[in-house]
Design a binder for these strands. Structure first.
Lengths: 143, 143
DNA sequence: ATTAATCCCATAGAATAGGTAGGAATAAAA
DNA sequence: TTTTATTCCTACCTATTCTATGGGATTAAT
């Protein structure tokens, strides 16, 4: 399951994409509109900024903006940032690779194969889930 | 990522399937062979027994046995038992269903669709990963 | 009786999740 | 130049979950 942090992050990003032309948007506006604890969201947006997914503008009338087009920002990036590896096992991740401590022989590990297939399928879908595509889906469903 | 508990459980189950004709097998044997902390494994096998995935025989020469054929026991059952829901969001699980607190409109939620597709694909693969199929994969790979 | 198991209950340290508090720095507007 | 609205920074806090460990009661085969 995704952590609250990740879900809040996704919600905030979708919000920013939706009101793209009103950027920069303040943390407090997003927090109120999406019912996210203010200070918690502040920390989340800071992380997104450090990861260069968002950019910020300080001072009055400042706030956060997407650092890139909604087509370029996808859920794989966000999930990895907050929840770490997407895979079920450390030995099938690309970014966070580590052997399984208890794995006697990685080459012939039957669980590993399954985990690898699941990872590949999941990553592909998360990468396909860009902010743009999420907004598009929502638009279609509202009809 | 799967918890250690789940990984230990899977390892123990594969071990039992592999030495099916030597059942019942004691906790201490599995713990030593697979390098799992004894008392921790004891608790894990108790849970598997309560879930009727294993059965036990007390006293000398006792131990644990699979409660069913290796074709009938799959990773979806095990993962659900120890790590809970497989889905990324509570609103797309079957067993543990809960709405997302912050979700304004579940019907038109764009993230939900993605999460649902991922869940379906993942569950299908985990259900396909029976103990029998895992052993079969390992056999093939050793060639 | 002895031995080798499971069963049962309680405890505990470490890490993580989720959230809070207060104030400094910055920048636009009045 | 003061006010106002914002991000930035640092520190803290609590509850829960994860990963175990310890001791002894019960059961059953030899």
């Amino acid at each position: 399951m995704l952590s609250r942090k990740t879900k809040y992050a996704i919600n905030a990003l979708v919000y920013l994409a939706r009101y793209e032309d009103e950027q920069p948007i303040s943390v407090s506006r997003i927090a109120e509109d999406r019912h996210i604890p203010l200070k918690f969201l502040e920390a989340i947006l800071t992380e997104l900024k450090n990861a260069r997914i968002l950019k910020s503008k300080k001072g009055k009338y400042g706030g956060y903006s997407l650092n890139g087009r909604p087509e370029e920002i996808d859920l794989a990036q966000v999930v990895r940032l907050f929840d770490g590896a997407i895979a079920l096992l450390p030995c099938v991740t690309h970014d966070y690779y580590e052997p399984c401590e208890e794995c006697v022989d990685e080459e012939t590990c039957g669980i590993r194969q399954v985990a690898l297939e699941i990872r590949n399928a999941t990553v592909a879908r998360l990468k396909g889930a860009t902010l743009a595509s999420i907004l598009e889906r929502e638009r279609k469903m509202r009809e």
